[in-house]
Design a protein around this nucleic acid. Structure first.
Lengths: 148, 148
DNA sequence: TCCTTGTTGCGACTGAGTTGCAACAGCGTT
DNA sequence: AACGCTGTTGCAACTCAGTCGCAACAAGGA
């Protein structure tokens, strides 16, 4: 349920290097932020944290690196039901997809892995002859503590 | 699979009126655009079409009306995998939720209704004790014509 | 018809994300 | 260890979606 982050540090780095992608100081800073995140971060939070590692990191570089990681399928982009503005959140893509539930009252984000979700994707691929690259299921509602 | 739009014209209007919400000329124009849409429209497309009905409709009013309809649970907001920029798309909420599949190559949007999706939501409500208000499943990948 | 109250148009603003460009730095090659 | 090709960066200016404060306005109940 919680973010299964804080993996082998440097894992993202070596995945990129293994694909012949150049590693630079700003990229290393940004990757380390993403790898060690304990909650969903948006671009400006990633920038702020990356700057504590390498003070010269620029906003554009954060966006360009996030684009790179998306194209490489190494991160997922989330909206989290736009609870706070229009921006996006990012998280490492690891193994199984999970569902994000956002509480409309307290803002808490809960993650949930479900076999049914996996079946649903298989059904889609079969019935619609659609080749899925990314699937995003976001739910808004009230968490156990806030429901009425 | 296609949009089940072009419902009883004026249906949205009477739903709002029935809730004691004031009907104005710009609102009527915007509602008629949403009701008669044959594809997913974004805010600026809604504005342009609404202006063919009432030339004085303003951009802010479109956003304010979309917010109203979202709060009333009468429309759904979609990203459609951000195939074209960062904006949002809107569609009437009718009966069962459906899944949106966006082809990353040709941009085609396919809709799909699935019993498994309904079970998944029930499972979520039960297992996570989460009260679902809105559920959005968007899939990016390759449609039958574009897959390789 | 009047009056209250919610709605609108306007214009200025915010904040996310993008872009062109010159300077720079990986990293494979020598 | 230095070289050089080529991809990457910082910067600053920009675009675009969406928001906001406010004075004028209009819906619809009395």
């Amino acid at each position: 349920m919680p973010l299964p982050q804080t993996q082998i540090p440097g894992r993202l780095q070596s995945q990129l290097a293994g694909r012949g992608i150049r590693l630079t100081a700003p990229r290393r800073a940004i990757l380390s932020v993403i790898e060690t995140a304990t909650k969903h971060l948006d671009a400006s939070q990633i920038l702020r944290k990356a700057r504590t590692v390498d003070a010269s990191v620029n906003r554009s570089t954060v966006y360009r690196t996030l684009d790179l990681l998306k194209r490489q399928g190494l991160i997922d982009e989330l909206d989290l039901m736009h609870l706070n503005g229009e921006g996006h959140y990012y998280e490492r893509k690891l193994g199984r997809d999970h569902i994000h539930m956002a509480c409309l009252r307290c803002g808490k984000i809960t993650e949930f892995v479900s076999k049914t979700f996996e079946s649903l994707k298989k059904q889609l691929e079969r019935d619609c002859r659609f080749h899925i690259i990314v699937a995003r299921l976001e739910v808004g509602g009230y968490c156990p503590a806030c429901r009425h």
